[in-house]
Amino acid sequence: MKKLLAILGAFGLTATGATTVVACNKGDSKKDTLGGLKASDFAKALLGTADKATLNTKVITIVGGKAADDAKKKEITDNLKLFGHAFVVTDKDAAYPLDKGKKFTLTIEKATDAQIKEFYKAAESKDISNDDLALAKKLQGYISGTKFSSEITIEDQATTVDISGATAPSIGEQTITVTDPADVKEGDLSALNSNAAITGPVATAIKAVAGVPADVALGTDYEITNDGVAGDFTDAKPVKFTVTAKGDKISGTFEFTVQVKATT
């Protein structure tokens, strides 16, 4: 028999008497895969999960994150426990804690009205109201598709190097050539973000941080932006640059200021 779980919000209660769900080791090939979920959504997120209750909480949070827009995600978060009653999860062959390399088949399926009523009563020791049942079904409907089923192999969390403590580069005054120094455009200022006089020292500062891989690159692993505002740059003005990491190699952000002047 499968270990049948109802995702019961923060309490993570186990449901009984619910319909058995058939799991598929190769993943669900149907076009109506629940929320567009993939095995990779869970492989790292479930690392270290200690028990079924914790699994329920993590899984329902991931499912809720698949809602189409922020307003729907917020409504789900505000009613997470009720949202949890609207799904059934099986964790076939799961051996807790879920350490690196362990495998199990995870199946998530939308619950029927009867199952929602059963799960609610098990958690709350009372019957669900018509209003709460309607809300549970509404929240359930925010997630596309009907079912997700796949073998999950637990992986390590990606480790990144924080560059927030990087020594900010000291860059001398930069002169930009424009048509009218008194009317510098935003595009002229944005161009500084890819100017070698800026990008070179930034790359040096990032790679000087202990543990940063040598192959980190602008665009792929970090981006540079600035707060320059279009206007008169006849006289030099301070422009603040922000370096923001992205991807799975580095994390964090740091800032530095450069004096910028325009000329023809």
Rank of each mutant, 00 (worst) to 15 (best):
A168F: 05
A111T: 15
T159D: 11
G65R: 05
F254M: 09
K66H: 06
T20P: 13
I154A: 08
G101W: 01
K44W: 01
T153Y: 03
H85T: 15
V212P: 02
T20R: 08
D188Q: 05
V161F: 00
G252A: 09
V239M: 01
T220Y: 00
E173Y: 00
T242D: 03
A166Y: 02
E255L: 04
L37I: 14
A43D: 13
F11H: 14
A245K: 07
I171M: 05
F148C: 12
G64N: 02
G252V: 10
I163W: 02
E124A: 11
D70E: 14
F104N: 06
N79L: 09
E223P: 03
L37P: 13
V63P: 00
G9I: 06
T159K: 14
G219R: 04
D32P: 04
I224S: 00
P238H: 03
I171P: 10
S170M: 03
L82K: 11
E255R: 02
A67W: 01
M1D: 14
F233S: 05
D32M: 01
Q115M: 12
G36M: 05
I176T: 06
N195I: 08
V22D: 13
A23G: 11
N130C: 06
K240H: 02
G17V: 10
E109R: 14
A122S: 14
L37T: 15
F83L: 11
S129W: 02
S125R: 12
A182R: 07
F256R: 08
D215E: 03
F87W: 08
D188A: 09
V239D: 03
D131Y: 03
V22P: 05
